[in-house]
């Protein structure tokens, strides 16, 4: 008996429609986040992440409506984020039906935002998202969708973020994201060793073997992926069976 490793499909949206990896099969409306959410809920996803990658202020009401529509389809936990800049943004996301929120750019600028969010909603609802890229012998945190370097060491930032109140780390490898060449196990393991909270690995998902690697070598507690699920390259059921057969504790669903 032990805590299961989680498999988490991620929906990258423009606030309203899924915008990355949209070659879905067997879906009448392929870009509709609620339709995909309904599918993953049945197929055995352990959690769902929905992100507003545009994160524009004007689109905020549209994204909140998207969260409501997605949450209505789910009997599993939902994490949502994109552009969370203050406690009110966080409250709006949780009120719309998310169980956890992610915060990224604003937290690097104002780490005390993590403390304020944790005080208001509890650490278990605050996920610190870090976009990291290898620079020389370490990894650096980037913000604004990975477009702006911060000069901050990603592992140090993870440690500090947890001290400030983050209850979970979502670590995305910018070197691996979109490559389908496997997760960044050294980065994930470095983060995982540095913090005491659960770590979600993101970027580079491909074959079932890549998930096995990130759980074993990368010491990840959860693994996130988008297109390989959207494109039905790997079914969630088959992936979990594979992991189970290779000694990873997962929640098997029929």
């Amino acid at each position: 008996m032990s805590l299961a490793h989680r498999i988490i499909p991620c929906l990258d949206t423009d606030g309203e429609r899924v915008v990355k990896g949209v070659n879905f099969v067997n879906l009448r409306d392929a870009g509709d986040p609620a339709a995909l959410a309904a599918r993953y809920n049945i197929e055995g996803a352990d959690e769902l992440v929905v992100l507003d990658i545009a994160a524009s202020r004007d689109h905020r009401p549209t994204f909140l409506e998207t969260i409501r529509r997605v949450a209505a389809e789910l009997a599993i936990p939902l994490t949502a984020g994109g552009g969370v800049a203050n406690v009110d943004d966080g409250r709006a996301i949780l009120r719309a039906g998310a169980d956890k929120l992610t915060v990224n750019t604003a937290a690097i600028r104002h780490p005390e935002l993590l403390t304020a969010l944790a005080a208001e909603f509890g650490s278990q609802a605050v996920v610190l998202a870090i976009d990291a890229k290898r620079v020389g012998d370490h990894w650096e945190a980037f913000v604004r969708g990975g477009s702006v370097a911060t000069g901050i060491d990603a592992v140090e930032w993870a440690r500090k973020g947890v001290a400030c109140g983050a209850g979970e780390i979502l670590i995305t490898s910018m070197d691996k994201d979109g490559t389908r060449s496997g997760f960044d196990c050294p980065l994930t393991a470095a983060i995982s060793r540095a913090v005491t909270v659960p770590v979600i690995a993101s970027g580079g998902a491909d074959t079932p073997e890549t998930f096995l690697e990130v759980f074993k070598e990368g010491r990840a507690d959860a693994a996130l992926a988008a297109s390989i699920f959207h494109d039905s390259i790997h079914g969630l059921g088959d992936l979990k069976r594979y992991l189970g057969e290779h000694g990873v504790s997962v929640r098997q669903t029929s």
């Binding site: 032990s2 805590l3 278990q124 909270v197």
Partner: peptide, 15 residues
């Protein structure tokens, strides 16, 4: 106690 990762977050079985 901080024996395992906290918060206890995710899917677990019962005894």
């Amino acid at each position: 106690p901080p024996t395992d990762r906290l918060p206890h977050m995710g899917w677990n079985q019962l005894r």
